Amino acid sequence: MPVNKDARCLRVGILGCGPISQFAHLESAQKGRNVVLQAVCDADVDLARRFGSFYDAISIYNDFDRMLADPEIEAIVIGISDAFHVPAAIKALSAGKHVLCEKPIAMSVEEAEELKAHVERTGLVLQIGHMLRFDPGIQAAHEFATGEMGALLALKAWYCDSTHRYTMTDAVQPVPRTGAKALKPVGDQKADRQRYFMLAHGSHLVDLARYLAGPIKSVQARLLERFGAHCWFVDTEFENGALGHLDLTLP
């Protein structure tokens, strides 16, 4: 049954038709009552045509600059390889487009600071795709922690990327399609497992800690690698004076 769209919808262009866009962004744009999928863009012609057509994109592009030149597009969703996030976001901001970018937002502190400067200079909105804070359970915890509970003493949070997760996602998610001409960063982005795990999974844990307890003032972390697993215990101090213990475990 077709979705009844609002009279005023945000017109978005999605950069990247790979797995993350197939799992999340394309369908969300199609189902959202206040958004129109104005365009998709992917370097792989077949991939862009396949998913642009399936999700009723008004325009289909294979060149990011051409999509950014589309005056109908108000915001860009960035769903491409992590190493390309900052360059693509800066391009979009410079073209006058708001941005929703997949996490991790950057590969280094320096990159993040460069992007922050562009956001401040343009006055546009940039949001990181940390979807976990919109989970109903997390929303309820945030409402309680920032309202009914009162002053915060401490926060304990545990994030475990369970091996059972992939059995479930394989059952409920569609098989992702990959293009023959996908743009890939130079080198193996997953070669440094510690760095990759902290960026890919740790970013979720840190974002939730900040969402529930506020900005973090200091961090002290320990890592144990055993049985093929990575386990970080992270002691934090929040700006409001509360203490925190964050446990990131990856089987």
Rank of each mutant, 00 (worst) to 15 (best):
A117G: 03
A145H: 03
K5N: 04
L37Y: 13
S203C: 15
T146Y: 08
R121F: 06
H164A: 12
I20Y: 08
P2S: 07
N240C: 09
D192R: 03
A213L: 02
G79R: 06
L183Q: 03
I90L: 12
M131Q: 14
A29T: 09
T146R: 15
I78S: 00
R226T: 12
L212Q: 01
T236K: 00
I216R: 00
G129D: 12
E225D: 06
E239T: 07
G16D: 10
C231K: 08
V12M: 12
K181H: 13
V36C: 09
G228F: 04
M131N: 14
R8S: 04
G179Y: 04
L246S: 02
R210S: 09
D42S: 10
G228W: 01
D63L: 03
D44E: 04
Q189I: 11
G244F: 01
A180M: 06
Y211A: 05
H245G: 00
Q194M: 05
D82Q: 11
I105D: 02
Q139R: 11
A83T: 01
P87G: 05
G13T: 04
I58K: 14
I76W: 05
G241E: 09
H130N: 14
N62G: 15
L223A: 05
R133S: 09
D82M: 14
K184E: 09
A242H: 04
K217F: 07
C231I: 12
A157G: 09
Y159I: 00
L132G: 00
L208N: 02
A145Q: 13
L155E: 08
S59F: 13
K116L: 13
E74Q: 15
F134A: 03
F233T: 14
Q127S: 12
D135T: 05
S203W: 03
A75F: 07
F238G: 02
K5R: 10
D207M: 06
K31E: 14
M198N: 05
E114P: 01
A88F: 09
W232Y: 12
E111A: 14
D188A: 02
I60T: 13
L224P: 00
I80M: 05
C160T: 14
A140C: 06
I80Y: 00
C101T: 15
D161Q: 09
R50Q: 13
E72D: 15
K97M: 02
S218V: 00
E27Y: 08
G123S: 07
Y211G: 01
V234I: 15
E110N: 11
H130L: 14
E114L: 15
F134H: 08
L153C: 07
L155H: 07
D161F: 13
